[in-house]
């Protein structure tokens, strides 16, 4: 316990440390918007073609895949 270092000094000196407050919201927002955008486009395609939700399902999967990819690129890396 005594050997434990004190937490780093409040950021600002070493690096412009962005705290993780916004990251969770960003991640969830990406997932939701990916799903909603491409799901909605898929729904439109469904109406146009006349199917019963197949394209909306595909759209949701594709959109959420895009959302995950965006999170990996923007928050991961």
């Amino acid at each position: 316990m005594a050997a434990q270092k004190p937490p780093n000094a409040p950021s600002g000196d070493d690096e412009p440390a962005p705290p993780d407050t916004g990251m969770g919201m960003t991640a969830v927002a990406y997932l939701f918007s990916g799903m909603l955008v491409w799901g909605a486009i898929g729904l439109l395609v469904d109406h146009w073609v006349g199917t019963k939700g197949i394209f909306a399902g595909i759209g949701a999967v594709v959109g959420i895949g895009g959302g995950v990819y965006l999170i990996v690129r923007r928050l991961g890396a």
Binding site: T26, A29, Y30, F32, S33, V37, I41, G63, L70
Partner: peptide
């Protein structure tokens, strides 16, 4: 083309 609508939606509409 897959990612830009998602980015637009999450940055300029959802926020």
């Amino acid at each position: 083309p897959l990612l830009i609508p998602i980015e637009f939606f999450s940055t300029f509409l959802v926020r």
